[in-house]
Amino acid sequence: MSIPEILQTIINSLPMIGRYTLVTMGIVLIFRTTATTNFAQGLIATVGTFAVTWASLLWTDLPLWVCLLMGIAVSFLLGMFVDVALIRRARHITPSGKQMITMGVMMILVNVTPVIFRDITLWTRPGKSFSTGILSFPLLGHTMNITEMGLLGFGLAAVVLAAVFAALKFTKWGLGVRATAANESVAQMLGVNTRVITAFSWALAGGLAALGGFFTGAGTALNVTLMGNAQVFGFLACVLGGFGSFPAPILGAVIIPLIYNFAGNPNLMGPNAGMWQNLITFVAVLLLILIFPNGLLGKKYIKKV
């Protein structure tokens, strides 16, 4: 591979990095506040993505960004609903039990989503997009290409994630999240309203994922499996980076798209690279996880009896 090709492959990964970091951030927020992994995360994002296209079809003179905000609001509320209606009431249940509850939610959403959005034949309709153009720009003396939508997605993801990290660090909510993540009962005793903190984390996770879903769906056929890969890779990103802190999983979500795009490069992996791209990425990530079972940035967790 030549240098410009390597650069171009990295640039090709940027849109995916943007989408995956958003989904991953949601998964970590939920994991840190509720100690479970949300298997419905991808579906909550998909519902939001459907809602964006649905709104733009229903009210044709509404600007797309308003529809996007509405879609994000739908996922925001859905995330909050899952926490308030189910997870909050299941606090005494083991993490695996909560995980199974989210699997149940996933099963319901998988089946209900196509039915809700069937009436306006949303099924397999391409998702809405701001632009279909391609941007060319020089980098180190070579010309690089990126889709405008991809760049926008990456840029927005970077801004939003920076805002979430700033909020975690500087706001009262962020302090509450960190306190809840450290120890829920102690946080409660110190006067943190852990219910509100947790519910808002679930809602925010939903909203972030919907933004990622919007950029995933833009221009491609919408269906319920839209976010399947993003969710599985999001989980793996969390394990790869280490669940212990907020930035570590984001690192994982940056590494995985890079592996994915290099694995799909025909000059590097042969003419059938596209076919085996997913497989190679999964194998590479699983091997990395086996080598670093506590995550790349994770600390060794010592179990106390």
Binding site: T37, Q99, V232, L236, C238, L286
Partner: peptide, 14 residues
């Protein structure tokens, strides 16, 4: 624990 579910999920995807 719950990490095992994620890793086996990855395996199943493979």
């Amino acid at each position: 624990g719950i990490f095992l579910a994620i890793v086996t999920l990855g395996l199943s995807e493979i």
